[in-house]
Design a protein around this nucleic acid. Structure first.
Length: 292
DNA sequence: TTTGGCTCCTGGGGGC
DNA sequence: TGCCCCCAGGAGCCAA
């Protein structure tokens, strides 16, 4: 399940691979993947003749800046570019891209296909079909159209994600600290794996009411979130099941998790057995002895 | 306002 | 071998 490190890995791959990729043809294999505009023809026509100019990331959202190719009236061979809004992608659970420079048949989970003039293909595949795409024309605000994007909390690597901010947002929260970490309006980009790993690293029980976390623990937690995410980005994401980079490869961070999917195995620190329990409908992995 | 549960979706795995 | 059921989880929606 792509979280911030995996999405960042994908972003880097797309930026590296898609230099001068001008979309000439768009094929929608599953209509529900296109969340906006409502009319799929608008989506197709909006993307056609667009240069995928620059890839950004916000939380778990990928945001491609687009430039439209425009032929010069006086000289047909001369092409200029004008701003053409953004293509926003959320991979959700199982979404990933592949880049194909030879024509190959798409698998049954292929949702969107983008082709350039040379039949190079950027293919979006998504087994569980939770992932979505939006094309937001120039002049409109993606934050207003995509609710989840507009309400995102600060990036974990930003200055605004600091101890004072965390203290302020959790001071009156009765729900669990695990649930807080999963809340994208509080911190952008953390999902189930990194919530569990960060809490283990900080030595905090995922079941603790958020408002009971003291300042020292908040410091440890902030540090743990940043360290765990940085370490995973360095490794190219996690191994677990569904995530693939542009080459179709898994990450390798999964081999190094301390608690996630290690139920019944020995804690790397105290040798106590790792436990699993549901919080907010999510499997939560933790060490009863190391996390208080 | 806050919180937790349900829903969407599909492949894998376990039980019978 | 085949069928059925449960599980995985991000985020929007809804009810308490």
């Amino acid at each position: 399940m792509p979280e911030l490190p995996e999405v960042e890995t994908v972003r880097r791959g797309l930026e590296q691979k898609l230099k001068n990729f001008i979309i000439k043809r768009v094929e929608i294999c599953r209509e529900s993947t296109v969340a906006y505009p409502i009319d799929k023809i608008d989506f197709i026509e909006g993307l056609q003749n667009s240069l995928l100019y620059k890839w950004n990331r916000r939380g778990k959202y990928l945001i491609a800046e687009l430039k439209k190719t425009v032929s010069n009236n006086n000289d047909a061979n001369e092409i200029s570019f004008v701003e053409n809004g953004v293509l926003v992608v959320h991979l959700r659970m199982t979404g990933y891209f592949t880049f194909n420079n030879t024509l190959t048949n798409p698998c049954k989970h292929t949702r969107i296909r983008l082709f350039d003039n040379n039949n190079n293909e950027l293919r979006y595949i998504d087994v569980r079909s939770f992932g979505q795409m939006w094309w937001v024309r120039d002049g409109l605000s993606p934050n207003n159209i995509i609710k989840g994007l507009g309400t995102l909390g600060p990036e974990p690597f930003s200055e605004s994600f600091n101890v004072n901010y965390l203290k302020k947002v959790i001071s009156n929260k009765t729900r669990s600290i695990k649930s807080i970490l999963l809340d994208q309006t509080i911190i952008a980009g953390i999902g189930n794996i990194y919530a569990d790993e960060s809490l283990y690293s900080a030595g905090i029980s995922p079941f603790r009411e958020a408002r009971t976390i003291n300042k020292n623990e908040i410091k440890r937690l902030r540090r743990a979130v940043v360290d765990v995410l940085k370490k995973s980005i360095g490794a190219g994401g996690t191994t677990f099941s569904d995530f693939r980079d542009l080459e179709g490869e898994n990450g390798n961070f999964g081999l190094q998790t301390n608690v996630y999917r290690r139920t019944g195995k020995k804690c790397r620190q105290c040798k106590n057995l790792i436990e699993r329990q549901k919080i907010s409908g999510r499997s939560t992995h933790w060490c009863r002895k190391c996390q208080k």
